[in-house]
Design a binder for these strands. Structure first.
Length: 1049
RNA sequence: GGGCGGUUAGCUCAGUUGGCUAGAGCGCCACGUUGACAUCGUGGAGGUCGUUGGUUCAAGUCCAAUACCGCCCACCA
């Protein structure tokens, strides 16, 4: 069969890969051909990955680029391996984060708050924001070359996901695994919502430490008149319901002292002084203060009361271990409703929990005369009033760590609020079991520990958020003042026409205020009736409202919907073809900071909803750090837009660079630089300049804008990109590959397809087949085992140092010979084809571009059987060469050649012989070695401008020559008329020193009797190499003597 | 306070079960551009593997202690 192929001239193919043109063209082609669309009626085995949905708060940065590159490399390999590969894309609504961004924008641009707009209008604005950023994110993914099935793109707040959320919530509600209760939450008074612990950061601020005195009621003689307490938040005293003292202060002090002594024993000299002084202070405290603490403890056990000043409310003195006798006065005021620790004390001691704050941060009726003041205003007044009463002891300045909301940057107020919870006992256990019994495998395994530790706490999951953006909780409630109301409400609900127990579930939440009289005073309901409604029952929802119930306003924690992601995206709870085909998914790739928040919850929700784990393998990949070792994030100003990198280096370089950097233990440190758009000068991003809206270029002095530009004037400046030099390696590699294929294009004219006869294979062909077989097998294993950097490194070394530097060079001679040319063309087309396919997952664009060119010249390729190449490399079969081609003898033969070649090059370089000057050389060796080198002998001419003129044990040494002694042979380079005696002496002396060092090491080892006894095999090997080294040394010394004599003559 | 990871060449990182002279890329030095590639080629210089101690015939590798850097969790009236 013949294929008349067109021909390429050098000018037809640029010597640099035009990635920008190729990316646009190829993305379009992939899209049109729907290569990445997975179908449900396939015979192929499925392989599914769901994307960790990026937040629609903003655009993707390099951390996402890493995450998505790794997923794409895996899914692309699996697709080529013949799996029905689905990579499910989508985005996350990211509840509070997104709402906060939009609210901030609203405030900045229009000076409005969300209340000015109202719920509906705000939510619409957020949807607009979401549309904008979802588009941007999906575009970024496409530009990166991600082979997602974009036709299936989901959003955690879309109709499909919403249905899954409703079903899950209903199911858990019905199982009594969701309940409403009071909980101390981190209240953001600015946003009017609770925020989770991980959305709170501690800000160091200058604050004060106030010392108060609370009067003792009816002090007996000998008893103190006051108890001393201290606080950093004086206004909370209005909610105090006790003062605590340690139950056994003496023992507690013993314990503290024992700990200090232990610390002292192992302390360094510099620490000793400080520890010793602490012990001193402790001893003094024991003498002066302990009796008083014991007295207070006894008073507490007697049930004595204190008078809370300002509100004149009697509060008990209680014993609790939370009070530390070694600190302050040893007594601590307890504000259960406004402090997490006090809350715990309150529960232990069954204290009243008095909530003194409204949702907006003002004080409520419980604060008596202070009602209506903001917490901060109340602080000053409380302090002033206490001072007026003579109950302010002192004020200290102190640095305090103020819990602050990450979203609104305002101080957090701990606040007791009604919240919905998921009961985690059983659910956590199921997720723990999945990992401990190996159904879910976390890689690297060390991360299993943080997963298990966190789940084992089994803390109930607060899922309600006082936000407008999110899944509104599907519960309709009614508060009932009397038991009769409750009964009546229940009866009425059950009688509703649309009511039935399969679509609605009822819970009755009793009031937690046990004291009936107090409950009435506070106007609290006796009980609240909650009805949870299954999705798709709008008529019942309407009837419930008509029956006087109101819908819960809160929305769900964004992680609630994220937890369903692996099955909600596939259409659960419907029994879809997608669910049966693609669930459970095959692997999850994510970053370590959401192991607990997300991975654990996906496992337990998958088990709860689908009765099956969501994925058998989880890969936790490294994080991208900036040049200072800090994680990248938009808020720090060190986030880099992958598009900047793509524009400068190309998507393949970004991807290959990412894969190459993805090792198992190290985070990826990526020093980034600004690139001046005017003069292309690059300079470091520093802590100081990275958040400036505009910068002057240090070289050309012109200004350019950054991602931080806000003002129109700044935005009008040309935008400077931020990239990293670390992608240059990958960019060069892409170009190298492009040029290797350019060589192929220029030499495939007249290509005819035919199987390659085994008898026609040369040594180098067999070597290439052997290497291709080994490399493809290793790369497959590496990618399957998430060892991306290993895979990238092996491919890089193979493609550059073996394929390009040796094989292609050798083919040049064969192309020059008309007889060998057709065969050389076939084997080149075949091996390039294989190499491209191996590189496709990491570098899909350049390999596709070359693939399409190759198809024009050599549409049919193959080795044992010839076939047309696939229409796209994305769907071509993954190389899986028979391991029978792996041939250690051939590889050894090749390495002999490489050693000889390097030796000749070394001589040429040290003798400073011009490239064009041909040299002659001989190889003195055993006949066996000569036989091995013989078939490759011709290539020395092309690759080192050296002609092999003789080989064997008896070659005659030329008059003037350089000798390179290697274990297997000696290379004798004829330097007649070229010799530089001094350089040669220098080289030989260096060689001699190296050999002597090596020999000494070997002799030392062999002189070690225990070693020889323990490892006889190894010792024998060393003995052989020692003998060779000694022979080499003799040769070198002889040659050196000769040159020394020449110099002295 | 608890846990985890890191420390190897000027920079960024490899180094499999301990074993012969510890590797790569970038950067640096020298030489080299008429047919794939200067985003290239060839050669070279550069490391007492954080520190201390231990196990072993043998330690970058195993153990212990310690310093520094980073991350996670808990806590700080």
């Amino acid at each position: 069969m013949t294929n008349e192929s067109p021909s390429f001239k050098p000018e037809d193919i640029p010597s640099r890969f035009d990635f920008s043109e190729a990316q646009t063209r190829i993305t379009k082609m992939w899209d049109e051909c729907r290569y990445f669309h997975a179908v449900t009626d396939s015979d192929k085995q499925p392989f599914t990955i769901v994307i960790p949905p990026p937040n629609v708060t903003g655009a993707l940065h390099l951390g996402h680029a890493l995450n998505n590159t790794l997923q794409d490399v895996l899914i692309r390999m699996k697709r080529m391996q013949g799996f029905n590969a689905l990579w499910m894309p989508g985005t996350d609504h990211a509840g509070i984060a997104t709402q906060a961004v939009v609210e901030r924008r609203l405030k900045e641009d229009e000076g409005k708050t969300r209340h000015d707009l109202g719920r509906e209008a705000l939510v619409k604005r957020i949807w607009d924001w979401k549309d904008q950023y979802e588009r941007r994110i999906l575009d970024q993914l496409k530009q990166m070359g991600c082979s997602c099935d974009f036709e299936r793109t989901r959003f955690t707040l879309d109709e499909t996901c919403t249905k899954a959320v409703r079903f899950t919530f209903f199911d858990l509600f019905k199982k009594q695994l969701i309940y409403r209760g009071k909980r101390l939450v981190n209240w953001d008074t600015h946003l009017g919502t609770a925020v989770s612990d991980d959305e709170v950061f501690a800000e160091k601020v200058k604050g004060q430490f106030w010392h108060f005195m609370y009067p003792v009621i009816d002090p007996q003689s000998g008893e103190p008149a006051h108890v001393h307490v201290a606080t950093t938040r004086p206004e909370t005293m209005l909610g105090d319901t006790a003062v605590a003292v340690h139950p056994d202060p003496s023992k507690a002090l013993d314990k503290v002292e024992a700990d200090l002594q232990e610390k002292l024993a192992g302390a360094t000299a510099s620490d000793r002084e400080s520890i010793e002084s602490q012990i001193e202070a402790l001893k003094e405290r024991r003498e002066t203060y302990l009796p008083k603490l014991i007295q207070l403890r006894d008073m507490a056990l007697d049930g004595r009361m204190l008078m809370l000043p300002l509100l004149d409310r009697p509060i008990p003195l209680v014993v609790d271990e939370w009070a530390k006798p070694e600190l302050g006065s040893g007594c601590v005021k307890i504000t259960p409703a406004h402090d997490p620790n006090d809350y715990e004390v309150g529960k232990r001691c069954e204290l009243e929990m008095i909530n003194i704050m409204n949702r907006d941060g003002t004080l409520n009726i419980e604060a008596g005369p202070y009602e209506g003041l903001y917490m901060k205003q109340a602080r000053g007044k409380v302090v002033d009033d206490l001072e007026a009463l003579g109950l302010l002891e002192k004020i200290e300045d102190r640095e305090i760590e103020l819990p602050t909301s990450d979203r609104s940057k305002t101080p957090i107020e701990p606040f007791l609020a009604d919240q919905w919870f998921v009961s985690m006992d059983q659910l956590s256990q199921s997720a723990m079991d999945a990992v401990t019994d190996g159904r879910v495998n976390i890689h690297p395994p060390r991360y299993s520990r943080s997963y298990l530790d966190w789940l084992s706490e089994k803390r109930d999951w607060p899922v309600s958020r006082q936000l407008w953006w999110g899944h509104q909780i599907p519960v309709w409630s009614r508060a009932c003042a009397e038991q009769a109301d409750v009964d009546q409400a229940l009866e009425k609900i059950k009688a509703l026409p649309a009511f039935n127990e399969t679509v609605a579930s009822i819970q009755v939440e009793p009031c937690d205020e046990q004291d009936d009289q107090r409950r009435r005073q506070l106007d609290l309901p006796l009980a609240t009736v909650h009805v949870c409604v299954q999705a798709g029952n709008e008529s019942l929802e309407q009837e419930l409202i008509e029956a006087g119930l109101t819908r819960e306003e809160d929305v769900l924690d964004t992680w609630f919907s994220s937890a369903l992601w692996p099955h909600s995206t596939l259409g659960w709870p419907e029994a879809t073809a997608e669910m049966s085909t693609f669930y459970p998914t095959s692997a999850l790739l994510t970053s370590r900071d959401i192991i607990t928040l997300w991975v654990g919850r996906m496992v337990l929700m998958g088990l709860n909803n689908c009765n099956e784990i969501p994925f058998p393998r989880v890969f936790i990949h490294p994080k991208i750090l900036d040049g200072f070792g800090k994680t990248m994030s938009k808020s720090k100003g060190n986030g880099v837009d992958p598009i900047d990198v793509i524009n400068k280096f190309g998507a393949d370089s970004l991807r290959f660079g990412m894969a190459r950097l993805c090792t198992e233990t190290q985070d990826v440190r990526l020093p980034v630089k600004f690139a001046c758009p005017h003069c292309e000068h690059t300079f470091d991003q520093t802590v100081k300049n990275r958040i400036l809206p505009k910068l002057p270029c240090p070289k050309c002095k012109k200004e350019f804008s950054t991602q931080w530009a806000v003002e129109e004037a700044d935005k009008a400046l040309e935008r400077g990109s931020v990239t990293s030099e670390r992608f240059e390696v990958a960019r060069n590699f892409v170009n190298k590959l492009w040029n290797a294929s350019r060589f192929a294009m220029l030499n495939l004219e007249g290509y005819t397809a035919a199987p390659i006869e085994e008898s026609e294979l040369t040594v180098e062909d067999r070597w290439m087949l052997s290497r291709l077989s080994t490399v493809s097998s290793n790369v497959t294993k590496s990618i399957d085992g998430f060892q991306y950097s290993e895979a990238a490194r092996e491919l890089y070394d193979f493609a550059w140092s073996e394929f390009c530097s040796f094989y292609v060079e050798m083919l040049k001679d064969r192309f020059a010979d008309a007889a060998q040319r057709p065969h050389a063309q076939r084997i080149l087309a075949y091996s390039l084809d294989c190499l491209l396919r191996l590189l496709q997952p990491m570098m899909p664009f350049v390999t596709e571009a070359i693939w399409q060119n190759l198809a024009k010249l050599a549409p049919e390729r193959g080795f044992t059987n010839v076939q047309p190449g696939a229409s796209s490399i994305s769907i071509a079969p993954w190389p899986a060469l028979d391991s029978g081609w792996q041939d250690a003898a051939i590889e050894e033969q090749f390495s002999l050649y490489q050693t000889a070649l390097a030796a000749i090059r070394e001589v040429r370089s040290s003798q400073n012989i011009a490239n064009k000057t041909k040299v002659k050389f001989l190889v003195r060796c055993e006949p066996k070695i000569a036989t091995m080198l013989e078939p490759l002998g011709g290539y020395f001419s092309r690759m080192a401008a050296a002609d092999l003129v003789g080989m064997g044990p008896d070659v005659v040494q030329p008059e003037t020559n350089a000798v390179l002694a290697k274990p297997e042979f000696e290379i004798l380079v004829d330097l007649e008329g070229l010799i530089d005696v001094e350089s040669e002496i220098t080289r030989l002396e260096k060689e001699k020193a190296n050999l002597e060092k090596s020999i000494a090491g070997k002799q030392r080892q062999l002189g070690n009797e225990k070693f020889v006894a323990a490892k006889p095999d190894l010792a024998a090997e060393i003995e052989i190499s020692l003998k060779q080294a000694e022979e080499q040394l003799q040769t070198i010394i002889a040659s050196l003597d000769k040159f020394l004599a020449k110099r002295n003559a």
